[in-house]
């Protein structure tokens, strides 16, 4: 039987970790863009739109990510869209991320004092202009720390996609364990990789939060 060196294991895990990173980035960027749209609809001065988005958010917050992944993976093919584990993972994580980010950002928009809306309204700004020039810039500042903090959840969330056969770092760990019978070593390394990815994000979220608190 072939003997795996530590380097063999680690290099294979790192190769798979590229997919974890890529999936995280895609989910975060696409989820962020979708999240902005959901946010705008969620706070729009149109009740049906707000209610629809509230449902959307509650749906994704109220069900396990794993379920969402299964549904996307098995439901998309029914609509005729060819679904690889890769697409399903990206779509599910994007939807999940958009819902959470929209809800985080809604809190930030609502934290902008009412006086800011009133002052800008009295200067004859339209709703869109108020949002763009007065409210969103202020909400953005408050939003940075929790947004960066949430990116950690996205990175960890990618682990779930191993279940539909997407080979990111967790799935790679399982495969290598099956070949080497060294679960502690392999999963230890997998955990370490997640930690190296996530810890800087948590740290910077905390640092940003401190910086913003000082600035006020």
């Amino acid at each position: 039987m072939y003997n795996f060196t530590l380097w063999d294991i680690l290099s294979n895990l790192l190769l798979a970790a590229r997919w974890t990173v890529l999936l995280s980035v895609i989910a975060f960027v696409c989820g962020g863009i979708a999240g902005i749209l959901v946010l705008l609809a969620r706070v729009a001065p149109l009740r049906p739109l707000r209610t629809a988005m509230k449902l959307y958010i509650e749906l994704f917050q109220g069900t396990p990510l794993l379920m969402q992944l299964f549904i996307v993976f098995f439901a998309l093919p029914l609509t005729g869209i060819e679904t690889s584990p890769w697409t399903a993972a990206a779509v599910a994580l994007t939807l999940f991320t958009s819902a959470y980010l929209a809800e985080i950002w809604r809190g930030c928009v609502e934290a902008v004092p009412r006086g800011q809306w009133e002052a800008s309204a009295s200067l004859a700004l339209s709703y869109g202009e108020q949002m763009r020039y007065v409210v969103l810039p202020q909400a953005l500042r408050i939003a940075v720390p929790p947004t960066v903090g949430f990116s950690v959840q996205v990175v960890k969330g990618t682990a779930v996609t191993s279940i539909i056969g997407f080979v990111e770092v967790t799935k790679a760990g399982t495969m290598i364990t099956n070949a080497t019978f060294q679960p502690f070593l392999v999963y230890g390394l997998v955990g370490l990789i997640y930690f190296v990815l996530c810890y800087p994000l948590s740290l910077s979220a905390k640092a940003l939060e401190r910086k913003l608190n000082v600035a006020r």
Binding site: A119, S120, L123, A124, V134, Q138
Partner: peptide, 24 residues
């Protein structure tokens, strides 16, 4: 003009005054 001033905190005094001139 409001009791609580309601200046836009992310803009300078000058930008506060210019915003509506530019946008509106």
């Amino acid at each position: 003009v409001f009791q609580q001033f309601n200046l836009f905190p992310h803009l300078t005094a000058g930008e506060n005054v210019m915003l509506a001139l530019k946008v509106v």
